[in-house]
Amino acid sequence: MQRIRIDQAKCTGCRSCEAACSLKHYENEINPKKSRIRVCMVAERFYPVISGPPTEAECTSKVDVIIEGQEHDECTLCRAACPSRPWFREPDTDIALKCDFCGDPPEPHCVQVCAAEALTMVEVQ
């Protein structure tokens, strides 16, 4: 089974994945705000997040996580298209966006353009 592996430390924040994703899913448009992958930038670190299923409601609990001394709102790293943030929803229509692996078999365009190899495809048993 194939999976996308994200190596956060390798991400350079170039957002080529956002451009490639939107171009793949729309006829001829590039728009990071319509991308199913977003690069979250916190304190000069980059966290690629790939969208999962949408959710109707925000989480009731709010959670902070500390990673290597840096505090993050856990929502930052969450994959859901959720009312708490604008990501993974089309800005003009509010339609939720979910990663579809760019088809079956998967050939995710975000991985193809990731020169830093922060995104790779791995085969897992």
Partner: peptide, 17 residues
Amino acid sequence: LIRNQGCFSCPMSCGGP
């Protein structure tokens, strides 16, 4: 150097903190 940083849609990432 702490890590690399690239401009928008650049695979070369010559910058960084």
